[in-house]
């Protein structure tokens, strides 16, 4: 059984659409049994219609920019305002999968806070969003999955990988650090880090060479510098009995790259 986790589309406010290659990948009818939308994706009827085409089983949780209710087809088939829950739980195989958009988890994105929520919801897998950065790790035998933003939309939070951080404390070593009491399987590809390092290298080089006045045009700005987001991404969870195989899809340089992580209960 395949469960699609999508989040933070921010269409149309911050993005126009998900990458066409993602759409093509997902537009296979009857393949995906369930879609979980993890917030900030309900301001586009076009996007929701697309998600409904992927699967009629949709779970949507409320993100900070979603209205409290959305107009949706009710069980009776008529359109009505449906309240978006803050948390939802999907039961599948031997797993209970919790969904939350992450905007009411304090501190934001904190593994221990997420763990407390997973415990409160009594779930084995917690899907969360709001960070625009794809992540997956196991902690205390629970599986935590953030599918990132399916559009790579701008985030106003601290940039995922950043050259924006203030120049004074510039030596930002962005290597993923092991967090307290946390076994981390970080499936995130090296590419973003590499990109980062490269651009850092460039900037230091130009810094050394600099004699003449730099102009705006001389400064190369990558899309990531402006969005603060990671590449567009989403996750597919293949659930068979007590095994959950997670496929992470990322859109890097106009290509779709896939990573795989296996979690067993």
């Amino acid at each position: 059984m395949l469960l699609l986790a999508l989040g933070d589309a921010h269409i149309p406010d911050r993005a126009i659409d998900i990458p066409l290659k993602f759409k093509k990948l997902l537009s296979i009818p009857d393949k995906i049994a369930h879609v979980a939308i993890l917030g900030n994706s309900t301001r586009s009827s076009e996007f929701l219609d697309f998600a409904r085409l992927v699967s009629s089983n949709i779970t949507i949780v409320r993100g900070e920019l979603d209205n409290a209710t959305i107009r949706d087809v009710t069980d009776e088939g008529s359109k009505a305002e449906v309240t978006l829950p803050v948390n939802a739980i999907i039961k599948q195989g031997q797993f209970k999968i919790g969904c939350c958009s992450g905007y009411n988890v304090v501190p934001k994105n904190d593994p221990l806070a997420l763990l407390a929520l997973a415990r409160q919801l009594d779930v084995d897998i917690l899907l969360w969003g709001g960070t625009h950065n794809v992540e997956a790790y196991t902690l205390e035998d629970k599986f935590f999955v953030n599918p990132g933003s399916c559009t790579g939309a701008l985030t106003t939070d601290w940039p995922v990988t950043s050259t924006l951080a203030q120049p004074s404390s510039d030596k930002a070593s962005l290597k993923e650090t092991e967090k307290l009491g946390k076994e981390k399987e970080d499936p995130q590809p090296d590419t973003s880090d590499k990109d980062m390092e490269e651009s850092e290298e460039k900037s230091t080089k130009t810094g050394q060479e600099e004699e003449r006045e730099l102009e705006e045009e001389d400064i190369e700005i990558s899309e990531f510098d402006l969005t603060g987001s990671n590449v567009p991404s989403f996750c597919l969870l293949d659930i068979q009995g007590n095994t959950c195989t997670l496929y992470i899809y990322m859109y890097i340089d106009n290509e779709v790259k896939v990573d795989k992580v296996v979690y067993e209960k």
């Binding site: 829950p85 803050v86 948390n87 939802a88 739980i89 999907i90 599948q92 919801l121």
Partner: peptide, 25 residues
């Protein structure tokens, strides 16, 4: 055990059957 409390205080209830189910709030 089909009932838990969500982070906003609402109860989240999951169906009893083993089929693919989504919670109600």
């Amino acid at each position: 055990n089909t009932l838990v409390n969500g982070s906003d205080g609402n109860y989240v209830q999951i169906g009893d059957n083993n089929m693919n189910t989504t919670s109600t709030v």
